[in-house]
């Protein structure tokens, strides 16, 4: 008597729509442009900003691949959480390791 109403049968077609061809090709163009920018900026004398530019551009490229090619922008929100978890733990790993190395002081033997 309290039978659940049958859920409508969903198929792949009811999932996120495939991204447009132009969207994919523009993303590739942006990635290649960022690659040229990255190689070019590495040859300029920018001091510590060389590293900022190198890693900043790499992060933007990775975000483009994650959001457009891997469809995190349109897919299930749970996938975005799982994806960010991997990178968040990596940030913790690197931050804590650096905190150790950068603040370690040689201790003299107490005898």
């Amino acid at each position: 008597m309290n039978a659940r109403p049958a859920r409508p049968q969903r198929t792949h077609r009811s999932g996120p729509r495939p991204p447009s061809l132009a969207g994919n090709l523009w993303t590739l163009a942006a990635l290649l442009l960022l690659l040229v920018l990255s190689a070019g900026s590495a040859l300029l004398r920018l001091g510590p900003f060389n590293e900022v530019a190198n890693l900043g551009i790499a992060a933007v490229k990775a975000l483009l691949v994650l959001t457009v090619f891997m469809r995190l922008k349109t897919d299930n929100a749970l996938l975005r959480i799982v994806a960010s978890t991997g990178f968040a733990w990596l940030a913790v790993l690197i931050a804590l390791s650096l905190a150790d190395v950068l603040t370690r002081q040689p201790l003299l033997a107490p005898w």
């Binding site: 990255s38 190689a39 590495a42 920018l46 060389n50 691949v65 994650l66």
Partner: peptide
């Protein structure tokens, strides 16, 4: 795509250090 993302970070860390 993940293999690609790994390489996106390998590229600046291996090939672009100290080029200027």
């Amino acid at each position: 795509h993940l293999v690609d993302i790994v390489w996106i970070f390998v590229y600046p860390l291996i090939y672009l250090v100290g080029r200027s």
